[in-house]
C-alpha cells in the first residue's frame, strides 16, 4: 500500500505538470474570440422585464461585455482557437487525472498507516494540495470561464507537491502518542481544508493584481500575463469569496487546536511558534476582510493583504516546521 501511494504521487505530479503545459498551450493559442464566446455563454440570465446594468449583478467572475470591449488585443503567438479548445479540454482532463491519482495516493497512505493520512508534514502538504485541486475542479465545473487560471493553480500544485515529494517525504509510521486523539481528525482536517481553499484564493488574488496592472496599461513581465485572464473585477470577487469561505474554517481550525491544546498541553493558547503564526495569518486575513469591506481602502491594497496572508501561511508551514522548534515540531519531517 505504501509503495502504491508513492507511485500515485509521482503520477499525480506528472499529470499536474502536463496539465500545466496544456493550460499554457490553451493560454498561448486562445484568442479574444474564444474567451469572449465563453463569456457570452456564461452571461447572467437577465430578467424578462429587467434591464439590469452590467457590472452590478450576475455571477461574480464574469468578464462583462464592457470589459471585453476595453481589452486590448492580445500579443503573443498566433491564435488558433481549435488548438486552444483541445488544449483546454486536455488540461481539464489531466487535472482530473492528477486529482484522482492524488486522492488514491492519500487513501493508500491512510490504509497503509491505519489512520487518517495527515499525521506529519508530508501528508499535510499532500492533503492541502488535494483540497486545493478539489476546490479548483469545483470552481471550474461551476464557471468554465475561469479556466485561464488553471495554468497558475497547476503551477502552485506542482511546486508544492514537488517540494513535498522531494524534501518532506516521510515513510509510513504510526502516530506519536501526543497526536493520538480524535482532535487530530477535527483540527488538522479543518486546517487542511482552509489551507487548500486559501491556496486557490491566493492564486486568484495574485492574478487579480496581475490583471489589474495589465488593465492599467502596464506591459512588463508579470503584468503581461494578464492579457488572457478574466477581468480584474470578477477575479477580485472570486478571490474574496474564496477567502471569505476559508476564513471561518481557518478560525474553526484554530479554535479546535486551542481545545486540543488545553487537553494535551494544559493551556488553550501558549504562543508556541505554530500558534503564533496561525494567529498572524488569522489577523492578516481578518485585515483583508475588513479592508475589502471598507470603501476607502483600494481593492488593490486589500488584495495585496490577501497575498501577504498566504505568505504567512507558507511561513507557518515551512519555516516554523523546519527551522523553528516548538511543540508542533513533530509535524516536521520525521
Amino acid at each position: 500500500m505504501a509503495a502504491l501511494s508513492d507511485h500515485l504521487l509521482v503520477l499525480a505530479i506528472l499529470a499536474y505538470a502536463l496539465a500545466m503545459l496544456t493550460y499554457a498551450a490553451e493560454y498561448a493559442f486562445s484568442n479574444r474570440g474564444m474567451v469572449a464566446r465563453v463569456a457570452v455563454r456564461e452571461r447572467p440570465r437577465e430578467l424578462v422585464a429587467a434591464g439590469a446594468p452590467v457590472g452590478t449583478g450576475g455571477p461574480l467572475d464574469e468578464p462583462g461585455p464592457v470589459d471585453l470591449a476595453k481589452r486590448p488585443a492580445p500579443a503573443g503567438p498566433a491564435a488558433d482557437p481549435r488548438v486552444a479548445t483541445w488544449a483546454g479540454r486536455a488540461a481539464t482532463a489531466l487535472t482530473l487525472l492528477g486529482w484522482l491519482a492524488q486522492l488514491g495516493c492519500l487513501m493508500a497512505r491512510g490504509f497503509a498507516a491505519h489512520r487518517v493520512p495527515w499525521g506529519n508534514m508530508y501528508e499535510f502538504v499532500l492533503a492541502v494540495t488535494l483540497v486545493g485541486a478539489t476546490a479548483w475542479l469545483v470552481l471550474l465545473i461551476r464557471r468554465p470561464s475561469i479556466r485561464p487560471l488553471g495554468l497558475f493553480v497547476a503551477l502552485a500544485l506542482v511546486i508544492l507537491l514537488g517540494i513535498d515529494g522531494v524534501k518532506l517525504y516521510t515513510p509510513v509510521a504510526p502516530l506519536v502518542p501526543a497526536l493520538n486523539s480524535y482532535w487530530l481528525k477535527i483540527h488538522v482536517t479543518a486546517a487542511v481544508t482552509a489551507s487548500g481553499i486559501l491556496m486557490v484564493g491566493f492564486v486568484a488574488a495574485a492574478l487579480t493584481l496581475v490583471r489589474t496592472g495589465y488593465e492599467a496599461g502596464k506591459t512588463r513581465f508579470p503584468y503581461s500575463l494578464g492579457a488572457r485572464l478574466p477581468a480584474a473585477d470578477g477575479l477580485e470577487r472570486l478571490a474574496f469569496r474564496l477567502h471569505a469561505f476559508a476564513f471561518p474554517i481557518w478560525t474553526f481550525a484554530i479554535i479546535c487546536g486551542a481545545i486540543w491544546a488545553e487537553a494535551a498541553w494544559g493551556r488553550y493558547w501558549g504562543w508556541d511558534p505554530k500558534e503564533t503564526w496561525a494567529f498572524v495569518a488569522w489577523v492578516i486575513y481578518a485585515g483583508y476582510l475588513h479592508a475589502r469591506a471598507t470603501p476607502s481602502v483600494k481593492r488593490t491594497i486589500a488584495t495585496w493583504i490577501a497575498v501577504i496572508g498566504w505568505g504567512a501561511m507558507m511561513i507557518n508551514l515551512f519555516v516554523v516546521n523546519l527551522v523553528v522548534s516548538g511543540l508542533h515540531s513533530y509535524a516536521g519531517v520525521g
Binding site: T276, T294, G326
Partner: peptide, 24 residues
C-alpha cells in the same frame, strides 16, 4: 477609524513575529 484599526491589526501581526523567532 477603520484605517487605524487596520494599521493596528497589522502591527499586532508584525509584533507577534519576534515572539516566534526569538526564544521566549
Amino acid at each position: 477609524s477603520m484605517r487605524t484599526a487596520l494599521i493596528l491589526l497589522f502591527l499586532l501581526a508584525l509584533a507577534a513575529i519576534p515572539g516566534s523567532l526569538l526564544p521566549q
